[in-house]
Computed example of a mutant assay.
Amino acid sequence: MRLEQLLGTQLPIIQAPMAGVQNSALTLAVCGAGGLGSLPCAMLGAEALQQELRLLSEQAQGPWNLNFFAHSTRPEDAVRTQRWRTALAPYYTELGLDINTVQPGAGRRPFDRETLELIAPFRPPVVSFHFGLPDADVVDRIKGWGGKVLSTATTLAEGKWLQAQGADAVIAQGLEAGGHRGHFLSTDLSLQMGTFALLPQMVAALDIPVIAAGGIADASGVAAAMALGAAGAQVGTAYLLCPEATTTDLHRTALKSKRAQHTALTNVFSGGAARGIVNRIMHELGPMSELAPPFPLAGSASAPLRSAAEKAGSSDFSPLWSGQNNSGCKAIPAADLTREMAAKVPPMASIKQ
């Protein structure tokens, strides 16, 4: 089954939800082109989320997707937190900041029933999750209003788990993908594989549609994924230069430079493994640091460094999220890019049912 059939889109393209570099403007542009536009919601407060929901429900042409995190919260370990702050202290001194003013907190909270009640009146057509799924009754509630439930899997075991828990489709996230890894059964990165190794195994093992994600940056990549059995493709990095994205000027400059050829998985920004362009803090502390508290607890201490450095014109401490293949990044309208992505895929009308 292709995404057009499952989700009601015109094209088999999902714009990946990318927290920190987009709002509903990008979501709406992709929806208008016939793809599935996504809105990252994990870092939105209730008021901001309601405002975005009103815009999407009133203006979206076709279905749209809300994305949330389903991670488990962990209590802070005072010893580990102090070790992390000690590691960051020289950078605070360099930037004229006081590390003792850092406020504890996660910065990202998992999807909960309060959020469910907030979104329910808007009946979002698609709700997707990173780091697993919420409880079964929550999944059933979303399905009850006709919503489709998607989630990310980074291994075959995770794909099978998501199918067993009622997901309508699985997003197979290859190791090439930018941003946070969606793993939830194991944090062992050696268990994870590239998109075009993971995808066919998942297609063969699952009875629900599989969506390819990671390293897909152009129409040829989308067509290749679908030739291997994908129901469609989720694309993120390629949208980062679009005018509808809120990508900072520093991030855009990095994406257009030779620096973008070197990405790595790092935990120094949030505590969770995420792929981005290598910069100073990744080089000096990691990229995978044993000192960083687990996701999402590392972010409270690293975020002030980013803010101060960016004000001074530096991306030394910024999460410059990017997949390994940024060749498809174009500073063109997101609607045009969406249509380009699907250009080599046969239209549904030409496929024998």
Rank of each mutant, 00 (worst) to 15 (best):
W321S: 13
I119F: 03
T195F: 07
R339L: 11
A217F: 02
P125N: 06
R83H: 14
L116K: 11
G215E: 02
A46L: 04
A70T: 05
A29I: 07
L189M: 14
A157H: 00
C329F: 10
V102C: 10
I332A: 13
A33W: 00
P110Q: 04
F111W: 08
L228A: 02
G144E: 04
P90W: 03
M193D: 11
M226H: 04
Q165V: 01
G105Y: 07
D77W: 07
A334S: 10
D249C: 00
N326A: 15
M348G: 09
R74K: 12
N23M: 07
A33D: 01
A106Y: 05
Q50F: 01
G20K: 09
R259Y: 07
F317Q: 04
S314G: 08
E114H: 14
A217T: 15
A205I: 02
A205C: 04
T266E: 12
E284D: 15
S289H: 13
L337V: 05
A224G: 09
I216C: 02
P209W: 03
K352M: 07
A223T: 10
G105K: 06
T27S: 11
G174K: 15
R141P: 01
T9V: 00
A273T: 13
L95H: 01
V235K: 08
L66M: 01
I14M: 08
G132F: 05
K256S: 12
E47I: 07
P287C: 08
D188A: 15
T246P: 00
E47M: 05
T9K: 02
L305Q: 06
G144C: 09
R259H: 10
Q61A: 15
S350F: 07
S151W: 06
S128L: 02
V138L: 08
G215M: 03
L206P: 01
A46S: 09
P134T: 02
